[in-house]
């Protein structure tokens, strides 16, 4: 079995969420690498979208610090504006989107705006960017988080990006026609919505992280999907694809 870092496992877990032929908002850093791994393994026809106004068939050849960097412009499949790529997101053409966040709650609502409330925040976070749009309008939302009790909370103080809102039918009742969190990929586990309320449950725990530890590091009483198992470790093929993209070993 190949050796791998926690971040590499998260990248490969994220890559496994991308299906062949899908149009995916890939964002930056970890998800963009995941997009590359998916393309080289099981999803050769996936298309990546970037909210600055780019579509790509293959990830950039050089390291990116932002999605607008020159290596992401070279060889793009489409160079256009923000309202075009986010407009087709609204049109229903985007299957999945990745976002990160400071806080996520048990129904998958994500806060990237204010800690301590919008009136008198203790921490002003950068804000939505495109996250609220991707969360509202893609068919599946894939969240990437560090798994700590102050990040996976019972209820976020501010919903920047809607998940299931109060659970059950609340998301549809708010007028959101599709979507919601499909998976939360953390450094300890993968959570998925389960049951009539769509509450996030433990779906798989990463090698070296017992379910008890995952529960302890979750800010609500985390329940487990029946049959939850260990996250399958990266295969040799997946690691080869990752190393082909991450040539400098940034994620090692």
């Amino acid at each position: 079995m190949p050796a791998y870092s926690t971040q590499e496992l998260m990248i490969i877990a994220a890559a496994r969420e991308i299906r062949d032929g899908e149009v995916v908002f890939v964002g930056m850093r970890l998800p963009i690498t995941a997009f590359g791994v998916a393309r080289l393994t099981h999803a050769p026809n996936a298309v990546g979208l970037f909210e600055c106004g780019l579509a790509r068939h293959a990830p950039a050849q050089d390291m990116l610090y932002t999605m607008s960097d020159p290596p992401n412009q070279l060889g793009a499949a489409w160079a256009t504006g923000l309202t075009q790529v986010m407009g087709i997101l609204q049109g229903g053409w985007v299957h999945a989107g990745f976002i990160g966040g400071a806080e996520i709650d048990r129904f998958g609502n994500i806060n990237t705006s204010y800690i301590g409330g919008a009136e008198k925040p203790t921490v002003k976070l950068p804000g939505s960017g495109g996250a609220a749009d991707i969360a509202a309008m893609s068919h599946r939302l894939l969240a990437i988080m560090n798994h700590e009790p102050h990040r996976l909370v019972e209820r976020v103080g501010y919903v920047t990006s809607p998940g299931g809102l109060a659970g059950g039918g609340a998301r549809r009742a708010a007028g959101l026609r599709r979507g919601g969190v499909a998976a939360v990929i953390t450094d300890r586990a993968i959570l998925r919505p389960h049951g009539p309320q769509g509450e996030l449950h433990l779906a798989s725990f990463h090698p070296g992280h017992a379910p008890e530890e995952v529960r302890e590091k979750t800010g609500w009483s985390l329940r487990t999907i029946p049959g939850a198992t260990e996250t399958p470790p990266p295969t040799a093929e997946e690691m080869a694809a990752l190393h082909a993209i991450d040539r400098e070993g940034f994620w090692r």
Binding site: S128, A132, P162, G175
Partner: peptide, 13 residues
């Protein structure tokens, strides 16, 4: 008119 922001607290703030 947009279909984003429904359910988001951006509508409140």
């Amino acid at each position: 008119p947009v279909r984003s922001l429904l359910g988001s607290d951006i509508l409140a703030s």
